[in-house]
Nucleic acid binder design. Structure first.
Lengths: 217, 217
DNA sequence: TTCATGGTTCGATCCTGATCGAACCATATG
DNA sequence: CATATGGTTCGATCAGGATCGAACCATGAA
């Protein structure tokens, strides 16, 4: 478990209220100065400086100096995603008891959008692709684009270049996932690796695949 | 910023090395006893007990008693997702310097699988759907299933029930995202809300949509 | 019933890190 | 050049929480 300390390090960075406030303030994509972030966090400029140094060292934020101003932004979309995930987990854990502000409402809504109609279309497409035998779920959990399917998507105008892996499955079974895949199948659920493709086409983000990894006892 | 403390609370839970080790040990979906988790974390049983109480109170794990044994599992797939996201951020932040063990390799590989061929097919399908005018990206960033598209997916055998919202767009523009959407469009990138659908069909998880929210300065 | 084992609770210890005042450096403006 | 403002660094303080030994409770097996 060599990895845990590093996970802990990142999590610990977001685990401080002041730093969490700063990160959240940066979620809308604007770049804020150290002073502004100090205000957001409700701490002094020196405390803010100390925190921001840590966030930058930890790779959660980027800083760009413009004259005497230091503009901070989230390091990348993954950090934003992390914050969103935290929000989601917090909400489910009922840790989120207060009504979020407008900005958070927008994020909430965006997430609802993810889980809505587009998801249904993706699911529908996957099922239809299977029924029409355009893709073939494999025993090992992978999904194969069939000859028929190749012809079909080609007829849609899909560029075949990236898909021209011959008989190569779209998603190969993963050694560590075999057991989980088998387990998931027995439960009448979709297999893990197969669900990778399905996740691509419409399920809530990664949930199915994680459900595969995450075999309920 | 009422939300930040709750985010911080969740993050802080994962921010302790012992707890992080425990959570990671549970990532493969197995249920582990308190004693096993104590071993995983390298702490005494009493310390483990204390930690597990917090994790359970925070909603990150679930516990099920069987006789004198207490089996712990991750609370849900979102928690697993959170851990994965943390791993991803840690990896990008170069905080991850050691070579992960086999189990982690499987997770890594699963993620590679996500970002691979299935993604290409999804992207290809989206583009083809647009080119064929089966879906129509709207000015406000939403995506509309066209009359033609409805007929098409219906011909695939896709159940129309969930999609029978008439002229309702698959993904409506979000008020808070309009500016970001416009901004993203100007950059030659895909719009935010439109990319919700696209994300469904193949882009790395939520990245595009977040990129939209996250407007680079 | 006794003993073993799993797990919780209590209390004391101590380390870590957030915090801020003071001082200093860097930049901008009049 | 002097003053104002943005931001960093240093050092001292102290609260919080991880930790573990001891004790206790709960369950299982002989």
């Amino acid at each position: 478990m060599k990895e845990a300390p590093d996970i802990a390090a990142i999590a610990a960075l977001a685990g401080d209220p002041a730093r969490a406030n700063m990160l959240t303030a940066l979620l809308n994509g604007e770049a804020l100065t150290a002073s502004e972030l100090a205000l957001e966090a409700g701490v002094t400029k020196q405390t803010a400086s100390s925190h921001l140094t840590k966030l930058a060292a930890g790779g959660l934020v980027k800083v760009e100096a413009q004259g005497r101003h230091r503009y901070y932004t989230l390091a990348d979309a993954d950090v934003a995603g992390l914050l969103e995930t935290l929000m989601g987990v917090a909400a489910r854990a009922k840790a989120l008891r207060t009504k979020p502000g407008p900005k958070d409402e927008a994020l909430r809504h965006a997430r609802l959008c993810y889980d809505h109609l587009a998801g249904d279309l993706g699911v529908g497409l996957y099922d239809a692709f299977v029924r029409n035998k355009w893709i073939s779920p494999q025993r090992d959990g992978s999904v194969q684009l069939t000859r028929l399917g190749r012809a079909k998507v080609s007829s849609f105008g899909v560029e075949m270049t990236a898909l021209e892996a011959g008989a190569r499955p779209l998603c190969r079974g993963v050694p560590g996932l075999e057991r989980a895949a088998a387990s998931s199948r027995r439960r009448g659920g979709r297999c893990a690796a197969g669900c990778v493709f399905r996740a691509r086409l419409g399920e809530p983000e990664g949930q199915i695949a994680r459900a595969g990894i995450y075999a309920h006892r």
